[in-house]
Design a protein around this nucleic acid. Structure first.
Length: 762
DNA sequence: TCGAGAATTGTTTTT
DNA sequence: CAATTCTCGA
């Protein structure tokens, strides 16, 4: 039946039939993992397991969808199996149980942007120095604590330093405000589900009994909260099957712990381990390259992927003088080979989203169809977010962040000062903003704004009443009209406004697809689904377009032809990693490279550029060390001599007189003394300073090829791109950079940061 | 209250 | 060089 149908190899078959007890499937890249998982679910159903007793957790919604449809195809009741991401699974559990944690059923989900707005308020309210307690950094730290399941109480107890105590205070206040707004951030979805289980035996018992067979994909990227979730559910029946590959763990930065997969047998001592090492995706050369690169990592489970496929074509390395040329080279190459590899078969992968820009510009110029993944998500666009904020406020009237966003959009005369008065009133009484606004007449000093506020309250409560008997689609239309949003948007006839109208229309369409169900419940559901959509989820095959995306987004995907662009030292691996000297970080970058290489089925082209604009400045880069780590027999270096390799750079550097032009650097070989170096115009000015390691840092880019500013002194003549020529009036150190006061010939006195101003000598 | 221009800041990767 | 925040005049 299933086993014959799916033509599985022996270890895959084993993985399918080992239904009872904990099971770890170590599935190398392209080893038929999805097929095996699907077969396993189908097999469980065939054995008489009820579909609602199975929980399958995937990494993306797209993967969930794919798995659901495949299971449906091979088992009659397949579509009743619960297949979802961790976040949506938790969400569904929380919708039915959040009241036990003190949340209302219609809680909002805050995305990164909403969280930032909230955090800004928290820091302001606590009156902490926003320079010392930056919102981004605070959110990062709090997120890290949440992922590690460090509770508020714990964070307060363990806080040793003054700073840590303050961070704990921020954590507390942030959480209090979330609660007050009846909102959860992404991390809360996981954390609160675990909390719900731990504090409510009956609820845990219910879900334990419900999910008797649990599968988790991409297990190498789970964090402690996710581990706890799985462990709680599986503790009794032990039917936990996890699938993953330690070599593809790339989400450490968001709390993933590789030890979850490395230590699975310790967590579940009676577990079985099955290895899938035959790769069905890539040709021999691609696989050889991948194996060669990943072999440089020390902390990993030893394994070697093999393939019975032909060696195929060797990888190609191409280097360029400048990033734009690299982009052109890629575009040209795609067009040239379009008969063999149609556009839809190609993907261009890169390390950072910023790199997509040049590629996009070139693709647009050449009329090459592409699909960009990442950057700004559809649901994060301004007008879409505005409308969603209205809807969120209608569904959850306590949602202060959403209220703040739209209270004056379109303009209705409720400005900052009025809002601050309302906020003061609500803070003092523990009310939400909308509740406080409903008492506008009692709020001191509001005067003329009071009437406008009353109108706003009526608008929202009116829409909330209507929502009870409207579908989501109809509610959106009503909201756009009643709020005046449509009107104000229609007044504008710019291209931009047109694009916004189109986006809103698209949102209406999505709501229509969602179904015609009426009331607040489907509304909440629509909103939460919107918050949990990732950009990759929207990727459709068969569009016939080249896909542009980060290496992270590419995880789990495959393409006949792959370009890895920007293979440059300091970009990939990034300079943060290089300067920190942290081996674990470097290994994570290498895994990312491994993920990239193994996306390719037939052809892989790597490229890099000697110079590229980084932060508004040209910086010079060497060839990525990862390129050198690819065994020579698997790669052809087609375009060469335009970039320097690390080896060549070191050789040159060792010649004694090489640095004569580098100012004081020669006399100060220790980078950790460079915090007070006398210059800051090149890209040494970032990443150095306090955290620099005492070990000699890997060599930064060769600098002799560009005009190099060695020192700034008062009286020097300099030229800025923006303001032209001028004379230095004052030089002052600020943090890791220099603050320059310049008297420009044409523009007068300006104060500029050296690293960003892009100075050259006159 | 609001908008425009000035000033200030900043870099991975994402659910 | 952006993108975002701040300041000031109306």
């Amino acid at each position: 039946m299933i086993l014959q149908d799916m033509s599985l190899n022996p270890p895959q078959q084993e993985a399918v039939v080992a239904t009872e007890g904990p099971l770890l499937i170590l599935a190398g890249a392209g080893s038929g993992k999805t097929r095996t998982l699907t077969a396993r679910v189908a097999y469980l159903l065939e054995q008489g397991i009820r579909p609602w007793n199975i929980l399958a957790i995937t990494f993306t919604n797209k993967a969930a969808e794919e798995m659901r449809s495949r299971v449906r195809a091979s088992a009659p009741e397949g579509d009743k199996v619960w297949v979802a991401t961790f976040h949506s699974t938790c969400l569904r559990i929380l919708r039915s149980g959040a009241d036990r944690l003190g949340y209302g059923k219609d809680f909002s989900i805050y995305d990164t942007d909403d969280s930032r707005v909230l955090m800004r308020r928290v820091i302001k309210e606590l009156d902490f120095d926003p320079k010392q307690f930056r919102e981004r950094e605070m959110l990062r730290q709090i997120s890290a604590m949440k992922n590690k399941m460090i509770s508020l109480a714990e964070s307060e107890v363990t806080a040793a330093s003054f700073r840590e105590k303050r961070i704990a205070r921020i954590y507390q206040e942030y959480q209090r405000r979330l609660m007050l707004a009846n909102a959860m951030d992404f991390d809360d979805l996981l954390l609160n589900t675990v909390k719900l289980f731990e504090e409510n035996e009956d609820i845990l018992a219910y879900w334990r009994n419900r999910f008797r067979y649990i599968l988790i994909d991409e297990y190498q990227d789970t964090n402690p909260a996710q581990f706890r979730f799985a462990e709680l559910l599986a503790r009794e029946h032990r039917n936990l099957c996890v699938v993953g590959d330690d070599d593809q763990s790339i989400y450490r930065f968001r709390g993933a712990e590789i030890r979850n997969i490395l230590g699975f047998e310790k967590d579940f001592p009676e577990s079985r381990v099955i290895r899938l090492e035959q790769n069905y995706r890539s040709t021999g050369h691609i696989l050889g390259a991948a194996n060669g690169v990943i072999a440089h990592n020390r902390s990993r489970r030893e394994k070697t992927l093999w393939t019975s496929q032909e060696p195929g074509e060797k990888l190609i390395w191409r280097e360029y003088e400048e990033a734009r040329e690299e982009a052109r080279g890629i575009a040209r190459d795609i067009v040239k080979e379009r008969d063999r590899f149609p556009y839809g078969d190609c993907a261009v992968l890169y390390r950072t989203n910023a790199q997509s820009r040049v590629l996009e510009e070139v693709f647009v110029a050449q009329g090459l169809p592409y699909r960009l993944i990442g950057g700004i998500n559809f649901y994060e666009r301004r007008e879409v977010k505005d409308l969603l904020s209205y809807l969120r406020l209608i569904a959850n009237p306590r949602d202060d962040v959403s209220l703040r966003r739209i209270v004056n959009v379109p303009r209705r005369g409720i400005g900052d000062s009025s809002l601050e008065r309302v906020a003061a009133y609500s803070d003092a009484r523990g009310l939400s903003l909308l509740e406080a606004m409903d008492q506008a007449e009692q709020i001191p000093d509001l005067k003329r704004a009071a009437g406008k506020i009353r109108e706003f309250v009526d608008l929202i409560s009116g829409l909330r009443m209507e929502a009870l008997s409207l579908s989501v689609e109809a509610l959106i239309e009503r909201t756009l009209h009643k709020s005046g949003y449509y009107e104000s948007l229609n007044e504008e006839d710019s291209i931009e406004a047109e694009a916004r109208r189109e986006n809103l229309q698209e949102l209406v369409n999505k709501a229509a697809d969602f179904g015609g169900e009426v009331g607040l419940e489907p509304l909440s559901q629509f909103l939460s689904e919107a918050s949990l959509v990732a950009d990759v989820d929207e990727l459709e095959s068969g569009e016939g377009k080249v896909v542009l995306m980060t290496l992270h987004s590419a995880k789990g995907l495959e393409f006949p032809k792959v370009y890895m662009a920007g293979m440059e030292q300091q970009l990939f691996p990034g300079d943060r990693v290089l300067f920190s000297g942290d081996e674990a970080e470097l290994e994570e970058e290498r895994r990312l490279c491994y993920v990239g290489i193994t996306r390719a089925m037939k052809k892989l082209i790597l490229s890099g550029a000697a110079r590229r604009m980084v932060n508004g400045q040209f910086s010079t880069h060497l060839i990525s060390q990862f390129v050198d780590e690819i065994p020579a027999e698997h790669i052809i270096r087609e375009r060469q001599g335009l970039m320097m390799s690390r080896a060549r750079y070191e050789e040159k550097r060792d010649r004694a007189d090489y640095f004569s032009g580098f100012g004081r650097r020669e006399s100060r070989p220790d980078y950790d003394t460079m915090g007070d170096r006398p210059f800051g115009a090149d890209n040494f000015s970032r990443g150095f300073g306090k955290k620099a390691p005492s070990a000699p840092a890997p060599s930064p880019a060769a600098k002799e090829e560009k005009p190099l500013m060695t020192e700034f002194a008062v009286g020097d003549r300099v030229v800025s791109r923006r303001f032209g020529a001028g004379t230095l009036a004052q030089v002052e150190e600020q943090g890791q950079d220099l603050l320059l006061t310049v008297d420009f010939d044409k523009y007068g006195r300006k104060v500029l940061m050296a690293a960003y101003a892009g100075f050259t000598r006159e």
